[in-house]
């Protein structure tokens, strides 16, 4: 969570950046010459940046002990592993 004594961008500044990124994602949809795959990758990259902003500045993850990163990101890793395991199932359907 945002610590009041924390130096850096204010919560309102982070909120403005989040809104700018939402608009950037919506603007991408107007680039019709771009391939669907490229747009999807860019949209997910923008989502990852937004999630990072919330995690770092609102949930204050950057000021937490390293063990918390292990707790928070191990399930992400497991989900990725699960997706990789399922790829052959999808490919040979």
């Amino acid at each position: 969570m945002q610590d009041p004594a924390h130096s850096g961008p204010t919560p309102v500044t982070i909120w403005v950046w989040l809104l700018v990124l939402v608009v950037a994602g919506l603007v991408l949809l107007f680039f019709e010459e771009m391939s669907h795959t490229t747009i999807t990758i860019l949209l997910m990259a923008i989502a990852a940046v937004k999630a990072t902003l919330v995690l770092r500045h609102y949930m204050h993850l950057k000021a937490q002990p390293a063990m918390l990163y292990v707790i928070a990101f191990t399930p992400v890793l497991l989900a990725v592993v699960m997706a990789l395991i399922l790829i052959p199932d999808v490919a040979y359907r």
């Binding site: 937490q64 992400v76 989900a79 997706a83 790829i87 999808v90």
Partner: peptide, 29 residues
């Protein structure tokens, strides 16, 4: 944070299977 980690597992799994099935089905456009 422990609770949220379990929630990541729930939503992470759903998002992963959705993405794979969507690719396999041709996009669901």
């Amino acid at each position: 944070w422990w609770f949220l980690a379990s929630e990541v597992m729930v939503f992470g799994t759903l998002i992963a299977t959705y993405s794979l099935n969507r690719v396999a089905a041709g996009g669901w456009d």
